[in-house]
Amino acid sequence: MKLSRAAAFSTSLLLGAVLALTGAGAAQAAPSAAAVDYVALGDSYSSGVGAGSYDSASGDCKRSTRAYPRLWATANSPSSFAFTACSGARTGDVTASQLGPLGSATDLVSITIGGNDAGFADVMTTCVLESEANCLARINQARDFVATTLPGRLDSVYSAIRAKAPSARVVVLGYPRFYKLSGTCVGGLSENERRAINDASDYLNTATAKRAADHGYTFADVAPAFAGHEICSGSAWLHSVNWLNIGESYHPTASGQSGGYLPAFRSAA
């Protein structure tokens, strides 16, 4: 049936309204992922320690092809991708050696940082090798650091990122809880130690989220994604003590990167 000119015009208007309501017409106007310049900063949780498949060119930084920044970049094909996260990094290492790729054109930045400043490795070593009393005392020491010293160090990093990339969306990712309480583990740390470690992780995440929000950054909490996949869960996305490769202990597996960190980042990016 042939429409009159007036009817055709009315149909065109109606179609346009439907597209606007459904969002179908907006797809063309939305910026594509290919237009994004993305820089991934941070420590071993961003470099992908524990996930294997390390890029030999990254040396001791141990950047994995299975780390969430690389997985996101592979899936979204940004116009540029710089991966400077490094195993063992503290806040000062980020400002000293990781910010080079940032610039006025940078659209997206991701970062995990703060755990090493708070003495993460020493806390876990103390808890694994020494008494419960020493473990709890070392955790309390770390909590004091997070309360008094870490906020200023995070401020320095976050301010440095904004100074170099004034237009970037910055996503600060947290750390998972390590243990499922009353889980499947037999022996090892006591339940009191496991609970204290989980509480310390929550404490660190809360402090980090506050500093991120004060800088206008988005905090991505990974703890919900790891729920049910903690150590002692029977389906862990975290390594326990790995005596063959001690540096991978208490780091996400490849599944932890793809199933825990990647979705948290993807929803916030």
Rank of each mutant, 00 (worst) to 15 (best):
V36I: 14
A30M: 09
G59H: 12
S56P: 14
L71Q: 10
S56K: 09
A17E: 01
L71Y: 04
K62S: 11
L71N: 07
L15E: 00
V49F: 06
L19R: 02
T74M: 11
S12P: 03
Y54Q: 07
G42I: 11
D37A: 14
T74A: 15
L41E: 03
F9P: 01
G52A: 13
A73G: 08
A40G: 03
A67L: 11
P69M: 14
S53A: 15
S46W: 06
F9W: 03
V39S: 08
L21S: 06
L14H: 00
G52V: 14
R66G: 07
A24K: 02
A30G: 01
G48F: 08
C61N: 13
A67T: 04
A7W: 04
Y54S: 10
D37S: 14
Y54I: 15
A20Y: 03
D55H: 10
D60S: 15
A24S: 07
G59C: 15
G50K: 10
G52Y: 09
G23C: 11
N76D: 03
S44R: 02
A75M: 02
G23N: 06
C61G: 14
G16S: 06
A33E: 01
A67F: 07
A67H: 01
A7H: 02
Y45K: 02
Y45A: 09
F9C: 07
A75L: 04
A30P: 01
A26W: 03
G50A: 14
S64L: 15
S53L: 14
Q28T: 14
D43V: 10
C61R: 12
G52D: 05
G48W: 09
A17F: 06
T22W: 01
D43L: 12
R70A: 15
L19H: 04
A51F: 08
W72V: 14
Y38V: 08
A27P: 04
A24T: 03
F9Y: 03
T11A: 14
Y38S: 05
V36M: 11
A8L: 13
K62C: 10
A27R: 06
G48A: 14
S77T: 12
V39P: 06
V39M: 12
V39G: 10
A27Q: 06
R70F: 12
T65P: 07
D55L: 15
T74I: 10
A8D: 00
L15G: 07
A7F: 04
N76E: 03
D43P: 01
A67K: 04
A26R: 01
G48C: 13
S53Y: 07
V36N: 04
T65W: 08
